[in-house]
Amino acid sequence: MIDPHSSKLKLEDIEIQLLLEGIYQYYGYDFRNYAMSSLKRRIRRILEVENLDTVSALQDQVLHEPESLQRFLLAITVNVTSMFRDPAFFIAFRNQVVPLLRTYPYIRIWHAGCSQGQEVYSMAIVLQEEGLYKRCRIYATDANEQVIKQAKSGIYPISLMQQYTQLYLQAGGKHSFSEYYTAAYDNAIFRASLRDNIVFSQHNLATDHSFNEFHVILCRNVLIYFDQTLQKRVHQLFHESLCKLGILCLGRQESIRFSPYENDYEAVEKTEKIYRRLS
């Protein structure tokens, strides 16, 4: 006899597969190669919030009510981010990457999976302080339209600024962090000049193609949500999009081992996952 509990788990797996397939075929969003264990947790969370009993019921809702798709898209991906997340990374970037960038007359940077933009504004601040910003064009992309909108606005809750100030200082910040924003009621509005050379747009790493050649690509805490097959695809995309001697930055606990091109890179700063493409 089949144990009812474990058979239910298997049925849920089937339902999840059908849900992802349906969303891909109908809307074109491809979650089929996301890491299953973390994806499953978020799908269960959505069932709770939407007050649904089964994944099949969720499938029915998402396919037949386009406005519920928007809620699904926001909840199925993780947008948790921060300014100067991992301050040690930004210190390493200042010390090891900035000197390399000084040798270029023009610098193109791609933040893939930039979420609500905090990482991008952090980078813009570093580049301004290092006197490089004027030469840079930053492309900030995310698959999620709504987080891109928020990123464009450059407006964040004022309540976060105390924590961001700490991180900014730990990351080697050279000024007073409050110079970079104006407070308005509950919001901190970041200086528009930080945005001068940033282009925000929607781009899906699972389905879209290379759109330019870059000197630096940052993709931090995004690949952890993909399985090894999709990670390979994305590494292929990065390899196509990175110029020779270009810099690739991954998240603190991510590794270049799953790139089919691992051997084309050398570590610039191993613990901070900063790599340089050699060939």
């Binding site: 264990s37 973390s38 947790r41 948790v80 952890i224 949500y225 606990q253």
Partner: peptide, 20 residues
């Protein structure tokens, strides 16, 4: 488990996440 990441397991490998 590394600081500030959730640790999950799949049949033959680990998965990390920065979910809430």
């Amino acid at each position: 488990a590394p600081a500030d990441y959730h640790l999950l397991v799949e049949p033959d490998h680990f998965v990390l996440s920065v979910d809430e």
